[in-house]
């Protein structure tokens, strides 16, 4: 049996008296797509921040494959393959989509420190970036500055940037946030089509999407993992119905 792609063990974090992560245990097997759900303020984004090193946990361990990455800086965690996207677009407004993705590819390939050769000399990196953009159907707009792209295209660019880093584990923070429902299905189809070499944990509020794409669901409430299970288990779980689905009976 191979090691899980991502393991979180005994993770704690509090701001003063506010506990935002309470003894979090989490296992993401290779190639799986798990969903992280929970009401607003449950600590889902905070958990991503903790795992990626943007926040420092008070205690706990984060393993990527077999190796402990708890003490690595955020950029080194990305280099090891733990990559996230942002709920609110965090892009490079004046770079074209092609430049932005090429930038991420260059950083991964370790050619970003090179300042004595012009960028076009790195044909492979540019072609790779373009291929990623094509795969997300951003090829036609790749020379436009990011800020001129439609919102839905910017959401796709978020994912393109993450893919360019060569992720083993992808943490998607509400990838379809703010995207109209018909486009969001398309976006998730693109995510579902990603290579099975990439394990994915995604935060999402739309239960239709969650039940369709996730093999397992993790429910967070108040900084704690309430319950974890298959979609069927979660749908029938009494606790979940009370604290979470109780408010939204559209499932």
């Amino acid at each position: 049996m191979t090691a899980p792609a991502l393991t979180v063990h005994g993770l704690n974090k509090s701001f003063g008296s506010l506990v935002v992560a309470n003894d979090i245990e989490l296992v993401l097997p290779p190639g799986e797509r798990h969903a992280l759900i929970g009401p607003n303020g449950a600590g889902k984004t905070t958990l991503i921040n903790l795992m990626t090193g943007m926040l420092t946990p008070d205690s706990g361990q984060i393993l990527l494959g077999d190796s402990d990455i708890s003490r690595l800086s955020p950029d080194l965690r990305v280099k090891r393959g733990l990559v996230r996207t942002f709920q609110i677009n965090s892009l490079f407004p004046h770079l074209s989509a092609l430049e932005a993705v090429t930038l991420a590819v260059c950083e991964r390939r370790g050619i970003a420190p090179a300042w004595w050769r012009a960028l076009p000399a790195y044909r492979d990196a540019i072609e790779e970036a373009y291929a990623i953009l094509l795969s997300l159907r951003l090829g036609d707009v790749c020379t436009r500055p990011t800020r001129e792209l439609a919102y839905g295209q910017q959401r796709l660019l978020e994912i393109a940037l993450a893919l360019a880093t060569g992720p083993r584990v992808l943490l998607l923070d509400e990838p379809a946030a703010g995207v109209p429902r018909e486009e969001s299905a398309e976006l998730f189809a693109a995510i579902a089509g990603l290579s099975k070499d990439i394990s994915i944990l995604f935060i999402e509020h739309d239960m239709n999407v969650v039940f369709r794409f996730a093999s397992r669901i993790i429910v967070m409430v108040g900084g704690r993992i309430l319950v974890e299970g298959t979609p069927v288990q979660i749908a029938t779980d009494q606790q979940v119905r009370e604290v979470y689905l109780g408010k939204r009976h559209h499932v």
Binding site: D75, V78, E99, L103, A104, L119, L161
Partner: peptide, 17 residues
């Protein structure tokens, strides 16, 4: 290109490694 990335969005840079 990386420098322009830092100018445009210093927060995002670590997240692309």
């Amino acid at each position: 290109l990386s420098l322009r990335g830092i100018r445009e969005n210093p927060v995002r840079m670590p997240a692309i490694g």
